[in-house]
Structures are given as structure tokens and as C-alpha cells.
Computed example of a mutant assay.
Amino acid sequence: MGSALETLCGQAYGAGQLEMMGVYMQRSWVILICTSLILLQLYIFSTPILLLIRQQTSIAKAAGTFAHYMMPQLFAYALNFPIAKFLQAQRKVMAIAIISAIALVLHTFFSWLLIIKLDWGLVGAAVALNGSWWFIIVVQLAYIFSGTCGRAWSGFSWKAFENLWSFVRLSVASAVMMCLETWYFMVLILFAGYLKNAEISVDAFSICTNILGWAMMVAMGANAATSVRVSNELGAGHPRTAKFSVVVMLITAFIIGLVLSMILLATRNQWPKAFTSSQTVEKLVSELTPLLCISIVVNNVQPVLSGVAIGAGWQAIVAYVNVGCYYVVGIPLGLILGYALNFGVTGIWYGMLAGTVLQGIILIILTYRTNWNKEASMAGDRIKLWGGYKGKTGIEEK
């Protein structure tokens, strides 16, 4: 839901309407904290929910224990995402990077201390994660309150409680778009828990998705850069610059994904040893590596296209695309291959990949056929609607 700010703050910054950015962030805080109170029920009742859908008892209990200790992080997310989008829209990315780097060092040390040295296990992992995220929140807020953001932050305002319903609708559209992507991968891991030798399947699948997640961190950087640049340029009335930015980021993301994939493929018999001591799991991970490599290339390009959608305000359209590609094509195909045709975890991954590829193709077509001058004009109208517009936004000619 916080990604709604990428559209609003980015376009407001591009149009020079900085004073509305802090208000947008506060509105997002109000909405996300309320949403977190609702989502909290999933954390509290996670074990009964998993048992209800017939997950293995040991997995359900372990997940439930972890979820209970992770509740503070839920509220950290509610504050952090709006802060990150607020700073990214102003291109203050280096501040976020430095704070995150410090948090990473601290997180690594405390993870080792609590999980390994003190043998707290999952509880130690949760405590370390909670501490790291709240450290980031406190330092980022100190950075913003210190006056480094100029007119973008002028203090707390009652305007944060105005026009909330319209803000909720845009936030929900953003949430649906992003959640359908994230849940897609989580649901497939869930299905792996129903396969024969479930622990081995879940282990191997989790290792691969962990690597995919690391690779996607690079891609999500491209996602943020694309959405910020596109929203800034559309807000400023520069459609040609927005279009050029998309092309540059697509090429860059593809090359990065290709390089990462080649490294993994070349070391397919070595890198799994860093995650497991089980030879059975190692073998399955090695077999999945070619699919993992293809997924990394595809998933490096896909976030850039999603970034275009967020920057231009297409969240609702992409949500429909995600439903069709992921839940009408990807998941059913994965289940057919994994269960009916006995391909196991490999079949599930084939289905996941098919849905992602189809989504990427559709988004490329949408992006290619976009009228960027029209999008810049719509950005100007959106700024008027949300109250941050005080002048005429000029649109450059073709």
C-alpha cells in the first residue's frame, strides 16, 4: 500500500509541489497503521490457519512461533515504506543506503549472537529482525526531522486526515498489484509443502527463492529508480525523458540478471553447500538452478516494468494483468505439472515461470504502446486532484 506514494510523491516532486509530500507520507502512515492492526490477526492465528489448510504440524508450529515474535516488525513496515518512498521521490537514496548499510552490519552481528551464540533459534531471528527494522525507522525519522528535506517536511499536519478515502483507494490498488506478485511466490512454496518428501521440497524451494529474492533486491532497486524517474519526469511534463529512462533501465536490468544467472549456473554444484548439509537437498537445488537462472533474468526485467506502472499510476491495470497471468495461468499450470504429471517441485517452478513470463510480455506491450504525452497530461491532472498543484505543468512537445 505504501507504493501509492511513489506515484503521488514522485509526481508532486517533479511538479515542484514539495509541501504536499510530507502530508502524503502522513496520510499513508495513518492508513498503513490501521491496516497493520487488521493484518495482526493473521500473525496471532497463524498456527491454526496453517493447520486448517493441512500444513505439517511441525512447520505450522514453527511458523506460528516466528510470526508471534515478528509482530513488532509489521508496524515497522507500516512506518518504513512511506518513509522510503518519501525519500526516494526526492532522490535522497544515499541516505537510505547508508542507514541500511549500518543496520545490515548490526543485524549480522546480532543475528549471529542471538541465533548461534545464545542458541535462541527462530526467536533470536525475530528479535534481530525487529531490532534492525526499528533502528532504521528511528534513524530515518531523525534524518527527516533534522530539516534535510526542506519544504517536503514542514511538521505534522491535520491535513493527513483529509481525503483519506481517495488515498485508501489508490493505496489498495497499489497493494493489490504488489501483493498479487509477492503472494504468487509464497503460495507456490505453500504448495511445495504438500508434495512427497515435503521437508526436502520446501528446503530446496526455499533456498532457490531465497537466492531469487537476493537477486530481486537488485531488481527492486531498478524498480524504485524507474518509478521515481518516471513519476518525476511525468510530473515535470517531460514525457520523452520518461520514455528514455524506461529503455535504459530495461537494458541495464537485463544485463545484470544475465550476469548473475551465468555465475549461478557456473557454480551450480558448489553454491548450494552454503545453505544445506543435506546431499539430497543439494542435488535438488542443483537441478533447479537452470530454472532459477531463467527466473532471475525474467524477474530482473519485470520490476522495471512494474516501476513504470507505479510511476505512471497504472496500479489498477497491472493488478488485473497479475490476476490473469499468475492465478489463472501460473498457479494452475504449476499444480498440474507438479501434482497431476508428477514433476514435483520442478513442475511447480515451471508454472511459476510461465506466469511471470506472460506477465512480462503483456507489460512490455503496454509500455511500448504508451502515449507518454498523454501520461504527462494525466500526471498534471492528478496533482490538481490531490491538492498539490499551484501552477501550470508544461508538457513538452513530441
Rank of each mutant, 00 (worst) to 15 (best):
W112H: 08
W120R: 12
L250M: 15
P82A: 07
N322I: 08
S46V: 03
A225P: 07
V329D: 12
I99S: 00
G360W: 00
Q302P: 00
A222E: 12
I294A: 08
L258T: 12
T65W: 07
T57E: 15
K392E: 15
K85S: 12
T226Q: 08
A192Q: 09
A379I: 07
V298D: 09
A253W: 09
A316V: 06
G380C: 06
G355C: 03
G360P: 05
L118S: 10
V23H: 09
I189V: 15
L42C: 14
K61A: 11
V345P: 00
E6C: 03
Y13N: 15
G311T: 03
Y24K: 05
V248Q: 13
P303V: 08
A215R: 02
Y350G: 00
F167W: 03
S58T: 10
K374F: 07
G257M: 13
V230L: 02
F167H: 08
I296P: 04
V105C: 13
L358P: 02
S295F: 00
I255G: 07
S132P: 02
L5A: 08
G221Y: 09
V321S: 07
M220R: 02
L114A: 13
G351F: 03
A160P: 10
I256G: 00
F343I: 02
A101F: 11
W271F: 15
I296W: 10
A126E: 14
W349L: 03
T252R: 06
N322C: 12
Y13L: 06
V138H: 04
I211A: 03
G121V: 02
L122N: 08
Y143C: 07
I33S: 09
L40N: 06
N197M: 04
F156C: 14
F109N: 08
I255V: 15
Q302S: 02
L87H: 00
L358G: 07
A219C: 11
E199Q: 13
T252F: 14
I200L: 11
E233H: 00
C149L: 04
G14Q: 05
A175N: 06
V304T: 10
F254D: 12
Q140V: 06
G355S: 07
I136R: 08
F66C: 06
T35P: 00
V321I: 14
Q90A: 06
V328N: 03
W271G: 02
V93M: 11
N322M: 11
I31C: 05
Q26P: 11
V328I: 15
Y327L: 14
L260R: 01
L50A: 10
V345L: 03
L170K: 02
A192M: 13
S377Y: 04
G360V: 02
Y24W: 14
Q302K: 04
F161P: 11
L141M: 14
H107K: 13
I365Q: 10
N197I: 02
L333I: 09
V30M: 13
L79Q: 05
T280Q: 12
N163T: 01
L51N: 12
I102D: 02
Q55T: 04
R54S: 10
T393K: 04
